[in-house]
Amino acid sequence: MSKGLRILLILLAVAGVFYFFVWDKPHKDMGSARSDSAISANALYQAFDSDETTAQSQYLDKVVEVTGKIRSYEMNTEVQKVILETGDILGGVACELDDLVAPKRTSFQVGEQVTFKGLCTGKLLDVVLVRCVEL
């Protein structure tokens, strides 16, 4: 094997590795992702409501496991979302279900206690977690 061919093969291998692990890397697998923190919906909401900057540095982009009672939920082709009670009249913790994995179930009951694991994206009216999977 000539030296040139060998270099070419090595380059191709590197390109292949780059393609699979960097360029085409998959989204985080939420089913197996380890939670960075576990917290109640009340406490998570309070954290953002009282000091948003600190809460952002603590929770943004992190896998957060949140437990609370269901205030409302919406399950249709457009939205799959469960809102958890926080003790605040307006704001809740909104858990958008992960659309990359089939959810454990799509029927819920208001008032039921649930735990979701998801990526925290911040607070608007609600504290929003995306790509949630139920535990």
């Binding site: 085409d24 890397k25 985080k28 982009d61 990526l119 994206t121 607070k123 608007l124 995306v130 790509r131």
Partner: peptide, 16 residues
């Protein structure tokens, strides 16, 4: 209107 930037979902994880 308000939207959270980190909530945008891309098909490609790298792009996101």
């Amino acid at each position: 209107f308000a939207v959270l930037i980190k909530g945008f979902q891309f098909e490609s994880a790298l792009m996101q």
